[in-house]
Simulated assay, not measured.
Amino acid sequence: MPPEDHAPMGLRERKKRETRVALSRATIRLCVERGWDDVAVEDIAAAANVSVRTFRNYFSSKADAIAASHLERMLRIADALRVRPAAEPLWDSVLHVVQAQFAPGDASGARPSHDQRWRDGLRLMLAEPALQGEVVKANAAAEEELAKAIAERTGTDVTRDVYPKLVAAVVGAGCAVAVEHSLRTEPDAPLVPVLREIFDRIAAGLPIP
Rank of each mutant, 00 (worst) to 15 (best):
R111D: 08
V97M: 06
S108M: 15
R76G: 08
A87D: 15
L183I: 09
V162D: 08
P89N: 13
A178L: 01
G133M: 02
A87F: 10
P164D: 02
D115C: 04
S113E: 08
Q116Y: 06
F102Y: 15
G121F: 10
E145V: 11
K165V: 01
L122K: 02
R160H: 11
P112M: 11
A130E: 15
G155Q: 14
R123A: 03
A110K: 08
R184K: 10
R123Y: 01
Q99W: 04
A80M: 09
G174V: 05
L81H: 07
K165M: 07
D79E: 15
K137S: 13
V162R: 14
N139I: 10
R111A: 14
M125E: 00
H181K: 03
A138D: 05
A103V: 05
L95F: 06
V179C: 00
C175P: 06
G172E: 01
I77G: 08
A100G: 04
T185N: 09
A141F: 01
Q99D: 11
V177W: 02
A176P: 06
F102T: 05
V94F: 09
K137H: 13
R119Y: 08
A149P: 03
E88R: 14
G105V: 06
V167H: 09
L75N: 13
V97F: 08
V97H: 05
A151G: 12
H114D: 15
S182V: 05
N139R: 14
E145P: 07
V83S: 12
H181M: 12
G105P: 07
G133Q: 10
P112N: 02
S93W: 06
A178R: 04
A176R: 15
E134M: 12
E152H: 12
D79Q: 09
G121C: 03
I77S: 03
H96C: 10
R82Q: 11
I150N: 00
L81Y: 03
E128Q: 15
A142D: 08
A149L: 00
G109E: 08
A110P: 02
V162C: 04
P112V: 04
G109M: 07
R153Y: 08
V158R: 13
T159D: 14
E145W: 07
R111W: 08
P104Y: 04
T185K: 10
P89A: 12
G172V: 04
A178I: 00
L95W: 03
S93F: 03
W118K: 03
R123Q: 13
R160C: 10
G155A: 13
T154D: 09
A141Y: 07
A138K: 01
R84C: 12
P104G: 10
L131I: 14
Q132G: 11
R119W: 03
Y163E: 14
V97L: 00
V98M: 14
E152L: 10
E145H: 14
D115T: 00
H181G: 11
R160V: 12
R160A: 15
A138F: 05
E134G: 02
R111F: 01
A142C: 06
R111S: 09
R123I: 12
P164I: 01
A130D: 15
L122S: 07
W91D: 13
R119P: 04
A147G: 08
